[in-house]
Design a protein around this nucleic acid. Structure first.
Length: 408
DNA sequence: AAAGCTTCCAACCGCCTGAAG
DNA sequence: CCTTCAGGCGGTTGGAAGCTT
């Protein structure tokens, strides 16, 4: 195993790709698509194995790659997602359009881990280093903190989800260390912040969770909260117990979702075993519930996702006011909240989901082009790259060219 | 200027999974 | 079932580039 049989064949090149090889591969895939990767090298006239071609395409040649340096928002998002998903780089990458898992893994290992440690956070557990060093006892206290949060007297669950993107698989995760759902009547509140300085003082519970990852969901009644029963305790609570993390969660704008009822674990969904990327033309089966119709073509308009959204467009979107079969499969699968709503609709006893999405003003640029990672054939809409980003991009491209041509 | 050290990242390696025969 | 193959993922590494002394 490991190296594929093709790789054992002689004459296969290894190491850095030359510009000529890049051109061959790019031309071939642009013209014919990749099809079976193992046949690509032969068809493209490359002395590489298919795996190497695939990697080169995914990590470098793909036209929808963003390149450029990571924005603060992207770094924040990576940290947040890592707290929930761990080293599942591909799933993290799915939340950052135009970024590859390799790229994210690299920036995590080279940069973000260091930054977290500097802030006194253990990058593995996302707990304060002092707690990690102290071992078991602190695990206990951490658990207590988390339970405190989960069983707080306040009765709202607020999740910020303005960065909820297509391909999100958050609810599919089954971390080994799981929390149990709060008892009926208990409510979570994990409210995001809009300012790095007042993060821990501006919210009623001062608990923070994925401020740009999930919409703000509010439970308003005593329905059982089995919405996210599988998040590791320490991961849910790390930000809340670590004010030092606040700089990571600054400048978040978020939208809010309020749900009259929390949702069952999505693993009950028959959808979830499906891969993320599939044919966008596949329509929902007839039994699928009515779903919101705020997705248009392959471009995600997740309520707030359009960064140019004006104040007028901030009117709540009532998910129930939709037509059957308007949604396509990818739209379900790329959006856990929609999925959740669908599932909830499927449940016999849950007839009404008063899901409300309130769009707030501007969102960061990295929320754009949400479909890119999912539908690479789509040309990325004109990225509204700011001047700085453009210069970053140019600098990196120049650097890459230098690297590529320098050793010829 | 040169040597040594550090950082970064592209690419490889090894493993896993699922499909096909 | 078993084997083979291909795709995919996460961990690791080699070397170029940058920095320090």
């Amino acid at each position: 195993m490991g190296r594929h049989s093709c790789c054992y064949k002689q004459k296969l090149r290894k190491g850095l790709w030359s510009p000529e090889e890049d051109e061959k591969l790019l031309r071939h895939i642009t013209k014919y698509g990749h099809g079976c990767w193992s046949s690509v090298p032969k068809q493209a006239g490359l002395q590489r194995c298919g795996k190497s071609c695939r990697l080169r395409w995914i990590n470098y040649l793909r036209p929808d790659l963003k390149r450029g340096t990571f924005s603060q928002e992207e770094e924040n998002l990576i940290v947040e997602l890592h707290a929930v998903l761990g080293n599942r780089w591909s799933q993290i990458a799915a939340q950052l359009p135009g970024r590859t898992d390799n790229e994210i893994k690299n920036i995590w290992n080279s940069c973000l881990k260091k930054k977290l440690r500097q802030r006194g956070i253990d990058p593995v557990t996302h707990k304060p280093l002092s707690e990690v060093e102290n071992g078991e006892d602190n695990n206990k206290s951490q658990h207590t903190n988390s339970l405190d949060m989960l069983s707080g007297a306040s009765s709202e669950l607020k999740l910020n989800t303005d960065n909820l993107k297509p391909g999100t698989t958050l609810y599919e995760q089954r971390p080994t260390s799981s929390i149990t759902a709060p008892a009926p009547g208990y409510q979570l509140e994990m409210e995001g912040c809009s300012s790095s300085n007042n993060l821990m003082t501006s919210t009623t519970r001062k608990d923070l969770f994925l401020d740009r990852f999930a919409s703000t969901a509010t439970t308003t009644n005593s329905q059982p909260c089995d919405f996210m029963p599988h998040f590791p305790v320490q991961q849910l609570s790390y930000a809340s117990t670590n004010p030092r993390l606040s700089p990571w969660f600054s400048q978040s704008e978020f939208s809010s979702i309020s749900m009259s009822k929390l949702l069952p674990p999505l693993t009950t969904s028959p959808f979830l075993s499906s891969p993320i990327g599939f044919n966008p033309s596949v329509t929902l089966p007839s039994h699928t519930p009515s779903m919101p119709s705020f997705t248009v073509n392959n471009s995600y308009t997740w309520g707030m996702a359009d960064c140019s959204t004006s104040e007028k467009e901030e009117a709540p979107i009532h998910l129930m006011e939709t037509q059957p079969d308007e949604m396509k499969w990818p739209e379900y699968l790329n959006n856990p909240l929609l999925m959740a709503a669908a599932l909830q609709n499927q449940a016999p006893q849950s007839s009404l989901y008063n899901i409300e999405i309130k769009s707030e003003t501007h969102c960061s640029t990295n929320t754009k082009s949400l479909s890119n990672s999912m539908w690479p054939q789509n040309q990325q809409p004109q990225q509204q790259q700011e001047g700085l980003q453009n210069s970053d991009m140019c600098a990196k491209d120049i650097q890459r060219l230098t690297t590529a041509y320098g050793h010829i």
